[in-house]
Design a protein around this nucleic acid. Structure first.
Length: 384
DNA sequence: CGCCCTTTGAAGGAC
DNA sequence: GTCCTTCAAAGGGCG
């Protein structure tokens, strides 16, 4: 691993940007953000929030933090440059041993110079039951949850921690640099992001409720990927899913270990595996925090949850966001290495969000039109 | 049953 | 180079 500290400090996009991003009112902003969350959640629970006020505020915020929008790109440029050197050693693992695990060379992290000891927020702090790296196994995480993720009853089942590396090594021949690089400092020992205030606004012992909430269901399912999850090279990858859409996706995942019938069914239909897009920073963040929000707020509607997560995302400090950007970048890089010919365009017609097959291609066209119409409508509204 | 909602970010095509 | 569109996750809501 190359020393990143040299480029590492700046690979985050220069500290001066940091300053502009993290303006003086950042802390206040955070507090206000939480306050908003607290207030809004009442509405959210009854119905999807009318957040015009918040939206206005966000608009202002974005306006003030114009650089913030630029930041990821800038950072990416930095990081990409750096990573190109690093990936040589880091990601050139021929076999895809624990795809996501490769992404967490702590020293790699932009603020790694600080994080190992002061880990204010660990992106990968997946609480006790989950290895931090599991956040990088984003392509579904309910494989080992015996019951729905939001059920607190499962919270006590924090069994995955040590199994991680074991399972990993069991399914993959891990390179020495893989899991071995995971240090306690970057994992579940870290401090929570919002130790005092829950996303719902009420205070909770974060360590007890939140951590467990996110720990119950997260498991390196990617390690369990079956035949369809196998890369053409024979390398399993969590991004590979059957082309039949979400619902079947879940079935498929579970079928790895509990639905052999589905397996048989699948054999009848020679489906070519669909490679999903790598998750971006926000998606990674959502994956990690969703369970916490659900547990705390007893919310179930994803739309509402995502609204909260969106606000919380903006409430994150730049440093905290940077970690997710970094993880996302690594995901993309690995994805690129594993599927050099893959294009996001491939999934446009693949019908991932709906039913697979020819029908879906038609649906895709409809959907596209619908969205266009919607866009036009909104534009018309704006013009009024 | 299957799309919608809702969020941000990435990617690719069109211009 | 900018703008637009689609997809990525998720799961209740709804037609």
């Amino acid at each position: 691993m190359p020393q990143l500290s040299s480029g590492g400090g700046d690979d985050l996009g220069a500290n001066d940007e940091m300053i502009s991003f993290k303006d003086e009112g950042e802390q206040e902003e955070k507090i206000q953000e939480n306050a908003f969350t607290e207030r809004d959640l009442a509405d959210l629970k009854s119905s999807l929030v009318n957040e015009s006020e918040i939206n206005q505020r966000e608009a202002v915020r974005r306006g003030q933090q114009g650089e913030q929008r630029v930041f990821p790109d800038k950072q990416r440029e930095h990081l990409d440059g750096v990573s190109k050197q690093q990936d040589g050693g880091m990601y050139k693992s021929p076999a895809y041993p624990g795809y996501p695990f490769l992404m967490l060379p702590d020293p790699y992290l932009p603020n790694s110079s600080v994080s190992p000891s002061s880990n204010k927020v660990s992106v990968v702090q997946q609480s006790h039951g989950m290895h931090p790296l599991t956040s990088l196994l984003p392509y579904s995480n309910d494989h080992f949850s015996p019951s729905p993720p939001h059920l607190p009853t499962d919270m006590s089942q924090k069994t995955g921690v040590h199994r991680q590396s074991q399972d990993l090594s069991g399914y993959y021949s891990l390179p020495p640099g893989g899991v071995g690089q995971i240090t306690p400092s970057m994992s579940w020992q870290s401090q929570p992001v919002y130790p005092a205030l829950s996303p719902c606004g009420f205070r909770q012992p974060y360590s007890s409720s939140l951590s467990s909430a996110s720990s119950y269901s997260r498991f390196p399912h990617s390690l369990m990927l079956g035949p369809s999850g196998v890369h053409p090279t024979g390398i399993p990858h969590p991004a590979i899913v059957p082309p039949s859409g979400k619902q079947e996706h879940e079935q498929y995942d579970r079928s790895m270990y509990m639905k052999p019938q589905v397996e048989v069914k699948r054999e009848k239909e020679p489906k070519k595996p669909v490679i999903k897009k790598p998750l971006n920073a926000f998606m990674l963040y959502m994956k990690e925090m969703r369970a916490k929000v659900i547990a705390e707020c007893t919310l179930k509607e994803s739309a509402a949850i995502n609204q909260i997560l969106g606000r919380r995302w903006h409430a994150l400090t730049r440093e905290e966001q940077a970690k997710y950007y970094e993880l996302a970048r690594k995901e993309r890089q690995l994805h690129m290495q594993l599927y050099p010919t893959w294009s996001a365009r491939d999934n446009y017609e693949a019908g991932l969000s709906g039913v697979a097959g020819e029908k879906n291609k038609a649906d895709w066209g409809k959907k596209k039109r619908r969205k266009r119409e919607k866009q036009q409508d909104s534009n018309a509204d704006n013009s009024l």
